[in-house]
Design a protein around this nucleic acid. Sequence first.
DNA 1: TATTGTTAGTGTCATAGGTACACTTATGAC
DNA 2: GTCATAAGTGTACCTATGACACTAACAATA
Lengths: 227, 227
Amino acid sequence: MTTQTKQFCYWHPHPAVTTDIVIFTIRDEKLQLLLIRRRNPPFQGGWALPGGFLNMNEDLADCAKRELEEETGIKNVYLEQLYTFGKHDRDPRERVISVAYYALIPSDRLTLHPASDATEAGWFAYDELPELAFDHREITRTAHERLVAKLDYSTIAFQFLPKQFTLSELQDVYETIRSEPMDKRNFRKWITARNLIEATGNERRNGSHRPAQLFRTKRPGRVEIIR
Amino acid sequence: MTTQTKQFCYWHPHPAVTTDIVIFTIRDEKLQLLLIRRRNPPFQGGWALPGGFLNMNEDLADCAKRELEEETGIKNVYLEQLYTFGKHDRDPRERVISVAYYALIPSDRLTLHPASDATEAGWFAYDELPELAFDHREITRTAHERLVAKLDYSTIAFQFLPKQFTLSELQDVYETIRSEPMDKRNFRKWITARNLIEATGNERRNGSHRPAQLFRTKRPGRVEIIR
DNA sequence: TATTGTTAGTGTCATAGGTACACTTATGAC
DNA sequence: GTCATAAGTGTACCTATGACACTAACAATA
């Protein structure tokens, strides 16, 4: 290969820009995230966050959405910019700036598109991650911190649940992400006082016990700041 | 131009990456920020945030620090990554990704280095900003939101003050940034209950009235999450 | 040295919200 | 009808917050 064929030339050096996405879901009562096995060096065969290079005609957020859909087949889920990682030596090939995003997948939308066809992908419990390529361990840690923090002051927890859910399921989301149990009565008092959810009138019966009321959020899709 | 050819060539198109900095301080009882007059198109002669292109051998945060020092002569102040702005058409010349930071300058360090020599720069009240170049208005708004939010749950307010300060000065910081008055007794109760500051034993007398006790933060330099 | 103007500094009461804590209810399986 | 299981519910205490008004200390000056 000669430099003649490198056709994108600039007066000043430019870094490459990628988006990497931490895709969270709750599976098997655990907070899990999606990893991709790398098919090329560096870190060939190792696990990494899904991500890819920014196209020149797409907004940053669209790039993240595109990657998300390519890897999961899922659209229209909660996606938020996390942080931009830009240490000069974070990629051994060339200078790469990674704008990290995180996404939350509701548990009922997992089975539809199990994974991407081409690449090997897998869900991993956040507590049992394998070694990750590049600085992706730092990225996942930052995403987890953000997620835990946002539980307290936003309605982000609903993004893990289907449109209708029981209060026990909602409490499970909080407990799973925080890794600590909560008092059932206090949790219900707290969440109902916030005026965020309403009973649908339906109930769910699964198992030989009292059926649970189903609730929905009053403003679905929106993640709001609460206090 | 010295070189005939654009010598930095890549297999895929690369965007340019800049850091832009929202530099806040409190001057004349108002929250102000530093703007630079643009010397070149586009928006020539207009006001913009200080910022500049990322060097290939420097970390993102170092780029922001360098720009900050170039424009203000000030080092070692609070600097935090804000958000990355990446709409595809945000710069008319070429694709530019801007990693925005914000910095807080203590009021006692303002007069040392009034501004950069080369470029025209000026402090503007946040409430009375002129038209800004590019999407810099959106960046300043995002920075302001972050600042207001962090007042509540972190010790960021101290970053606007010298090492020793009075409780009235501290309250002024909160009131200035929030644009609303606070009750003096409740404020003092609140801040002292947090165990963040201690009396130095010194007092300040300025004017014909009772002198004020001087306080300092127990852990200077550190911005902590409080609740 | 008494008066005045100015900012520093202080306490109480009512309310709301958080926390700790245990039993009853409804169902399906057997 | 008995049993196992998860759903659902109330009270008492404590802490934090918010509203509210006067005294203390100083410098200037009359």
